[in-house]
Simulated scan of single mutants.
Amino acid sequence: MLRVRPVHFTSDLDGYAAQLEDQGLKCVENHGDWRVFDSGNGKVGIHQADAGSPMDGATELGFEVRDHEIFVRRTLEDGTQAEVVDSRHGGTARVTAPGGFNFLADPVTDLSLPTGGPLAVTAVWHTPDTAAAEKVLADIGAKFVQHRADGGSLFRAKNGGFVATIKGGSNAVELEISRDLDGGGSEQ
């Protein structure tokens, strides 16, 4: 089980939540400063950030998995660095890509498959090494979909959402909510 769930940090949590809802995403978790929205094909987490802080407006790559310990074992077996770590919400998996870029894969009990609706969440991973990023995505269980015109590739998570790689000077993540499944669409 693998679902794309990037996390966006914002000082305007209610305003950003309203933007996601206006695009058609549904709030499925609300814990005050942490909310999760479902597109039917991938999720988006939003987290409160202090206004003007370096995190305000930043997006991090993130996933949901069924069992973070099994996920770590399989990811290590496939050749990518992963470990079980404690986070503020319990045990989770941290994956470290070549160059030190890392992201979390949180355990969840919602094992639903994509509903096939008109929306899809795509995390766009800007990276200096697209080949290394694509190996990491394959090692965590994402499936290659296609090469992109910009030189990157598009990957699909079994339980929803997409990750696109694109050449960039440093690691960064952008969030896209697409009205189609080709990884393009309107950027959030």
Rank of each mutant, 00 (worst) to 15 (best):
D33V: 04
W34S: 01
F37N: 03
D38C: 11
D38M: 06
S39K: 01
S39T: 04
G40S: 11
N41F: 09
N41H: 08
K43N: 15
K43S: 10
V44H: 06
G45T: 00
H47K: 03
Q48W: 04
A49Y: 00
D50V: 04
D50A: 08
A51V: 00
S53C: 10
P54S: 01
P54T: 00
M55A: 06
D56C: 03
T59F: 04
T59S: 11
T59D: 05
T59N: 13
L61C: 06
G62W: 01
G62P: 05
E64T: 11
V65E: 12
D67I: 08
H68V: 14
E69H: 12
I70A: 14
F71E: 13
F71V: 10
V72Y: 09
R73I: 07
E77M: 09
D78R: 14
D78N: 13
D78H: 14
G79S: 14
T80I: 06
Q81V: 14
Q81D: 11
E83Y: 09
E83W: 10
V84R: 13
V85C: 15
V85W: 13
D86H: 12
D86T: 14
S87A: 12
G90T: 11
G90W: 06
R94W: 11
T96A: 04
P98H: 06
V108T: 11
D110V: 01
L111W: 12
S112Q: 06
S112C: 06
